[in-house]
Nucleic acid binder design. Structure first.
Lengths: 152, 152
DNA sequence: TATTGTTATACTCTATAACTATA
DNA sequence: TATAGTTATAGAGTATAACAATA
């Protein structure tokens, strides 16, 4: 992508779409996702696999079903993601004592170490993404987005 | 998707990811996109084609290149989108007097009429999506998201 | 030489259905 | 009967490269 992307297209911000909340969310997400994947490429992760790792490094012990619900992924997609992370020794599948159907996902030591590196990269990318917001704006944004994202 | 989706997974909101701004944007976008496509199904559009229509109904006369830049789509994807809308008589490609390489996209009467129906549907869906925000919160969200989405 | 639109192609992501083992 | 995980597969979306016409 060229550096001056969208310069000519700026006039379209005056259209019916330019101030539409759903469109702004979509565009902000596209930028955020691209920046995240770029930042994570160094450590061999993508936003998806990073998210799975993030949900398993703190002793959460989520089932694959829970991962899928929280990340809005189909169970079959979770299988593929966990397969990949497990093949690389970053997570393991453990049996759930309470339900033998369920497999609980736990980050290994290597997974935790890689996550820490990855988190430094994504934090830097995030800071860069909204460098022009002050702390209060960031906080207000987080609070309001949480109401939308979690419907509460 | 079952109605009680994510109920069990709510505990994962306490994880490293639960308050991450990029993740909240991604999740809000996923909900918004799903709601938008659901609302637009009746009129035979998706969020993508609706967006192209929205950028052509007000006399904007964007080139395909401009559409691609603004919507962050590859030129080849714009071709496919415009092909589809043109085949359905909703937009036409017009020559640009200033540059014979360029094709300018203009909504037809039918395209404008369909857009108005579609916009009513998406507005209802949007209202439902952030029904729990008051006007001031909505405005603050729009303003801050614009800074991220347009980098200004 | 560079750019606009186009075609072709491969790749990733997403959605669906069917299956197994457990509940 | 219903649920967790798995497999297979098809469809949608995305990215890349090459080309003709024009600048």
């Amino acid at each position: 992508m060229s550096g001056n992307e969208g310069v000519r297209a700026e006039r379209l911000r005056a259209s019916a779409l330019g101030d539409d909340l759903s469109f702004l969310i979509a565009r902000a997400n596209a930028l955020s996702l691209a920046a995240g994947n770029r930042a994570l490429a160094d450590v061999g992760l993508k936003v998806r696999s990073f998210s799975v790792l993030a949900l398993t490094v703190g002793g959460e012990r989520p089932s694959q079903r829970e991962l899928g619900e929280f990340l809005r992924l189909d169970p079959s997609q979770v299988v593929a993601l966990v397969d990949d992370l497990q093949d690389r020794g970053l997570v393991v599948r453990e049996p759930d004592p309470a339900d033998r159907r369920t497999r609980v996902i736990v980050a290994t030591e290597a997974g935790q170490a890689l996550f820490r590196r990855a988190q430094r990269a994504t934090r830097a990318a995030e800071r860069e993404l909204h460098a022009n917001l002050d702390d209060e704006e960031r906080w207000a944004l987080t609070r309001v987005l949480r109401r939308i994202a979690y419907r509460d």
